[in-house]
Design a protein around this nucleic acid. Sequence first.
DNA 1: GACTGTGAATCTATTCACAGCG
DNA 2: CGCTGTGAATAGATTCACAGTC
Lengths: 222, 222
Amino acid sequence: MAYGYRIGTLPITTVQRLPSYLRVVRELQRNGREVVSSARLGETLRLEAILVRKDFGYLGITGRPKSGYRISELITAIERCLNWQRVSEAVLAGAGHLGMALLGYQGFAHHGINIAAAFDVDPERVGVSVKGVEIQPLDRLEPEIAERGIRLAILTTSPEAAQAVAERLVAAGIEGIWNFTGATLLLPAQVIVQDQDIASGLAVLSAKLNARAAIPASLETP
Amino acid sequence: MAYGYRIGTLPITTVQRLPSYLRVVRELQRNGREVVSSARLGETLRLEAILVRKDFGYLGITGRPKSGYRISELITAIERCLNWQRVSEAVLAGAGHLGMALLGYQGFAHHGINIAAAFDVDPERVGVSVKGVEIQPLDRLEPEIAERGIRLAILTTSPEAAQAVAERLVAAGIEGIWNFTGATLLLPAQVIVQDQDIASGLAVLSAKLNARAAIPASLETP
DNA sequence: GACTGTGAATCTATTCACAGCG
DNA sequence: CGCTGTGAATAGATTCACAGTC
């Protein structure tokens, strides 16, 4: 139940790899390539070729023996699966350091989203513009979401404020929350919450460094 | 081989959950609690209680029937596993939006690291100070790492610059790289690279929203 | 010959069932 | 009882072996 089921027919792990595939094949397309083999993709992304083929199989993409997979077909299928063909609008709640960084990030258009409005409680931040988006007071959250019909929110408040702001987002009609706060949100089941916890990545790195320091090099991977 | 093995005896998934456990039990400790049950922890973190017990079992922590796990023991064991008891120093390479956000983040001390020096190629950024850390030109990277004996680097350059900067970090003595660039780094096997790819989180969220929109609500989870 | 694609095998993670203990 | 902890069962992801196709 708590376990990460599938998304439609796709394993979650496959979906997680889609952006990497997309980045590489877009790059190949810019360089004029039209086909690519699973072996080549695996080499650039440090993945087993068979894993790449399985992933594409789940997507329903079929390649051709001898040549490989058609790049344009890959791009279309991945973008459709992620709904990244058209850019959808999102709101950003919490314009601290991280919120500002995400606002300033150029690449979201390639990832299917555009931050249409941003909000913060701090009066000092309200009125500041980043990339043409002006930070608004939190009272404007509900009307902006309603008027623009926005479904997706990026939550970058403090962990303390996260739950209360998330509830307002949901009440205003938001269906999906990309949660950077580290807080565990308690929301109705139909709201999709994706936790983006950078601490877990750091934990893995720390534990690996720690484990390696503790083991003499001669005993590694026996 | 490409599969995410274990770190020492711990499953990677267990290590990924450690920061969440740590955050909650520290909070409980501040509130004066001394013991906590797996059921209670699972409820606050939305995890099955049995999963919490399994994780603590891997850590070698043993609880007591009726009362639960001793909070001070949990904190000690988790911090030791991650080597977060003492704060280690790190360098940050690339002071764009994201780099600046990480520099400004208050909470790293609770995660065992302190950004001791930061670097960027852009002369406009050099000289700027954030939280007492002055951004230095890239030439200073090697001497700073050597003088301070730093082992850990946070890589927040552009994807294009990532490989070249990573090679310089490794040549200067860095043993672990926390890679935020999205680029796939090709480095000697003994260097530990942890990819922090936010696009994969967004992909999962996008695919879930997309899948739900495609399926009539009445057919969900049959 | 150079690739894809499928069904079985392996390996990992999670969950279940229930014994054990205060 | 109320909670931990273990060994077995299930579910999931990756890899293997090899047949199939251009």
